[in-house]
Design a protein around this nucleic acid. Structure first.
Length: 850
RNA sequence: GCGGGUGUGGUGGAAUGGUAGACGCGACAGACUCAAACUCUGUUUCCGAAAGGAGUGUCGGUUCGAGUCCGACCACCCGCACCA
């Protein structure tokens, strides 16, 4: 008897697939196409269980669709630009390029043994000049279309290292290397005009029927369409040129509850007042801390009374003080608000702190006006009693109050109803080396000049060093100093590079023609687009997906994608994350140093490093490179084979849910696959004559086909796996004849093939299956075998299950009722009480109400 | 702080508003074995000897019937625009 030896069979079948070119994607007009894509990985150097889970899901879909007759495109590439490469260069020396390509080679070497059905001939990395050169070409096309501009924007500034920090590099308001308090500082930066598409991006969400509802909701909230009033306060005592203060509010119905006017620390008026040392000191205080929304909104609310007054638009005798407040964002609305403490929690806290009046505009319907202990903020759809309405107090909803206020403001001419979006333009400038260079030149006479297309790619210079803080491109004279493409005079290249989100916003399109000398090729894009099934982490629900949707529109308008690809992803599946505990120690400055799970020794007492140092254990979180809480799947592959790793990540947890990695279970999976192997081996040598159980086995196989197919179609791979466990148990126990068992085993091989393709090929071959199972058409269940003649109906009495009866499938309800009421247990539980109601749900349940 | 999600046995989880706990892990018992491993068979939500009762984070509601729908709360997770 032979043994299941994954190490041998996996290599053998991978070679067989390669030789037969099973996974090479080809345009085939005769067949429908199917494009399945998993979010491509960052080449950290090691694959982890999250990758295995993500790519196995895509592989199951790709292999299944291929069996169903589709021409499948299933590519793989590398999201290869980004900070970790520069961090590695700073920490360990070496070059980001060498580090990145080395990591790619390592990761490819780890992924290949998984036996994924990937067309590797299409592989590319975003740091290939052939890729980012095409990105630069599109940047120039988008510039032509007016989709790109420059403006000042705020960055995290480390005053000690004299460098810009990413949000990730800010820890508790301090720079991660220097430990210095981070400041907010303005730089001139490049922006994509994504806000032009706000309405389109919002409305088109309705058409994304095969996207998770929660992702569409998150995107809609992110885009944040609001209807409100824009109006101007007349100012008293403001600097010249600021006779008006423009405000935007979504609650103009609360205008009579105004207690103050507030402006952002970045507002032009605040800047105009900065010559006053007190104002300057206050603004400096506001600029401490990071740039994230979270940092801004959780910071303690502080304010500064400017002494400026504004006239209330409805009563010129009513004057309000103008405060600078740190919780007002310059990016949203006009950067100025009126504060209504009674109906906004932030304003309430602010007013309480600085002793400003708190006057309610409305109270709960039927309630009396009373002092508030917190802001009263009912849903806008809720009816409330107005007590300080703009125009006549009455009971109405907030929405009605807002509409009335806008109408009144427009009639009196002090404001207009306007629609605004929360979505800001996409800032893409990064003051870093390892990214796609922005292909423009700054000339003293011509200004900002696009690089000529024939000079693309603007390639990153290799001879750079990371021994000083800041961007090495800034101090690389032979790269930076160039002739102006327009006038030929001495000029300087733009040294900012692009956000890596740009790289990942069009890679799906590039896979359709990865070697082309243009960004895309019309025929290839027309055939392969759109992505039929996109699979990736929920953490990308907003930014990556929104940017990609924007980019697809921009590519359509610049002629790089067809109209149908403006929404590039037909269906989206967001897998849950693989989580793991985090282990950390503290360095001399008290900052966190993270450790890999494989370096940790866990005992009952706690966790330590190998040298005995005690480590802090933080509860499970997303596996991430920076936190080092990653698990290495290579050990499982080495010990048990790729099929075990694949089966393991597909079983148990529903794909959309997070899964906590535990090492137990891999052995059990290997056991099961060994059992399938032995069963196949035994059946292949069976010579039993047909028996009367043959039909029952055929029925079980038909049931398995339906259940496994349902699981794959609905992204419930765990249910497909469960159905296969059940089918294995049934087949192992079946006393059927050899032919029936062989037939069932071949169906098993086919049904298992998307999850455990190597074992499936081996079983298929053992049982005389024709050719490769990877090329065999997906089995179909004979409907006749699925029909059940009788059903078991549970009987509930007052909603509690008390008995069950077995009746023919099509028995009419009146007959069922007679049989149910004659049932011994039913009679016992009814105890002679009269039946009030008798409910029969055909084929499901009976409920007797007494 | 704002937005989104999750919560079911010892454990991962299953359940178109219709028998809660499928399937797997673990545990326990048995068979095989000189013995062990492997393998095979069975038991396994809790309380109870049983009859029966309780039970899907907490509290309330809708319904003949709620894990599922609605409301409030608690806990945990994700995102918040320079991590990818």
């Amino acid at each position: 008897m032979s043994r299941y030896e994954p190490g041998q069979i996996e290599a053998k079948w991978q070679e067989a697939w390669d030789k037969a070119g099973v996974f090479t994607a080809t345009r085939d007009a005769a067949r429908p196409k199917y494009y399945v894509l998993e979010m491509f990985p960052y080449p950290s150097g090691r694959i982890h269980m999250g990758h295995v889970r993500n790519y196995t899901m895509g592989d199951v879909v790709a292999r299944y669709k291929s069996s169903c007759g589709f021409s499948v495109l299933h590519p793989m590439g590398w999201d290869a630009f980004g900070m970790p490469a520069e961090n590695a260069a700073m920490e360990r020396g070496g070059h980001p390029k060498d580090w990145t390509y080395g990591n790619i080679a390592d990761m490819r070497g780890q992924m290949k043994p998984l036996g994924l059905s990937i067309d590797w001939s299409r592989e590319f990395a975003t740091c290939d000049p052939e890729y980012y050169g095409q990105q630069q070409a599109m940047f120039l096309d988008m510039m032509d279309k007016g989709l790109i501009y420059r403006k000042a924007a705020v960055v995290n500034w480390d005053p000690v290292d004299m460098t810009v920090l990413a949000n990730e590099q800010v820890e508790n308001g301090r720079g991660w290397r220097s430990g210095a308090l981070v400041e907010r500082r303005e730089l001139t930066q490049w922006f994509f005009k994504i806000s032009d598409y706000a309405e389109d991006l919002l409305e088109a969400l309705d058409g994304l029927k095969d996207w998770p509802e929660k992702v569409r909701l998150m995107q809609a909230n992110w885009i944040g369409k609001s209807r409100g009033l824009q109006f101007a306060f007349e100012t008293i005592g403001a600097p010249d040129g600021f006779e008006k203060l423009e405000c935007y509010t979504t609650r103009p119905d609360t205008l009579m509850g105004a207690a103050f006017a507030g402006i952002s620390p970045d507002h032009p008026i605040a800047k105009a007042l900065e010559s006053d040392p007190k104002v300057a000191a206050f603004l400096a205080q506001c600029r401490l801390g990071g740039t994230t929304a979270e940092a801004l909104e959780t910071a303690e609310k502080i304010g500064f009374d400017t002494g400026i007054r504004v006239k209330h638009p409805l009563n010129p005798d009513w004057e309000l003080p103008v405060w600078i407040a740190n919780f007002i964002l310059m990016d949203y609305g006009t950067g100025a608000i009126f504060g209504c403490p009674a109906h906004d929690q932030r304003d309430f806290e602010f007013a309480t702190k600085y002793g400003l009046p708190i006057n309610p505009v409305f109270v709960a319907e039927g309630a009396a006006e009373a002092p508030l202990t917190e802001a009263f903020i009912p849903m806008k759809s809720e009816r409330v009693q107005y007590v300080r309405a703009l125009d006549g107090n009455r009971v109405m909803t907030g929405d009605e109050g807002v509409a009335q206020a806008i109408a009144l403001a427009e009639a009196r001419g002090f404001g207009q109803g306007v629609t605004k979006f929360r979505l800001r333009d996409w800032g893409i400038s990064r003051q870093r080396y390892w990214g796609c260079p922005i292909p423009v030149v700054h000339c003293a006479t011509c200004g900002v000049v696009p690089e000529k297309k024939e000079n693309l790619p603007v390639e990153l210079p290799y001879d750079v060093s990371f021994d000083k803080p800041g961007n090495p491109l800034d101090r690389h004279p032979t790269w930076r100093d160039v002739a102006c493409p327009k006038c030929g005079a001495a000029a300087k290249r733009e040294t900012d590079t692009m956000d890596t989100f740009v790289d990942s916003s069009w890679y799906y399109a590039r896979f359709t023609a990865p070697r082309a000398t243009t960004p895309t090729v019309a025929e290839d894009a027309a055939y392969w687009m759109n992505v039929d099934q996109y699979i990736g982490g929920i953490e990308h629900a907003i930014l990556h997906l929104l940017y990609s949707r924007f980019f697809a529109r921009a590519m359509n308008e610049t002629g790089h994608l067809p109209e149908k690809a403006r929404e590039p992803f037909n269906a989206l599946f967001t897998q849950g994350m693989v989580t793991h505990e985090i282990y950390l120690t503290r360095d001399a400055n008290g900052r966190a140093v993270y450790h890999l799970p494989e370096d940790i020794i866990r005992s009952e007492a706690g966790a330590t490093l190998k040298d005995g140092t005690v480590v802090e254990v933080i509860p499970s979180a997303k596996m991430s490179k920076s936190k080092k809480n990653v698990v290495d799947p290579m050990n499982i592959i080495a010990d048990f084979g790729a099929d075990t790793a694949r089966w393991f990540v597909m079983s148990d947890s529903p794909p959309e849910r997070d899964v906590e990695w535990t090492s137990s279970g891999a052995e059990a999976t290997a056991k099961h696959l060994g059992r399938v192997w032995r069963l196949a081996d035994e059946i292949s040598r069976d010579t039993t004559a047909p028996t009367d159980e043959d039909q029952a086995l055929a029925r079980a196989a038909a049931r398995a086909i339906v259940d496994v197919t349902y699981g794959i179609e609905n992204f419930a791979f765990n249910k497909s796996v469960a159905a296969l466990y059940g089918f294995t148990n049934t087949l192992a126990k079946a006393k059927a004849g050899a032919e029936a068992r062989k037939s069932a085993m071949r169906i098993m091989a086919q049904l298992m093939s998307p999850m455990v393709p190597h074992l499936a090929e081996e079983v298929w071959a053992m049982l005389g299956g024709e050719g490769l199972v990877a090329r065999a058409p997906w089995p179909k269940a004979d409907p006749a075998l699925l029909v059940e003649d009788s059903v078991t109906l549970p009987i509930q009495i007052n909603g509690k299950r008390r008995a069950e009866i077995s009746v023919p499938k099509d028995m009419p309800a009146s007959e069922v009722e007679k049989i149910a009421l004659a049932n011994e247990d039913v009679i016992k539980f009814l105890a002679g009480q009269p039946v009030k109601k008798f409910i029969v749900v055909p084929g499901r349940i009976i409920n007797v109400v007494v």
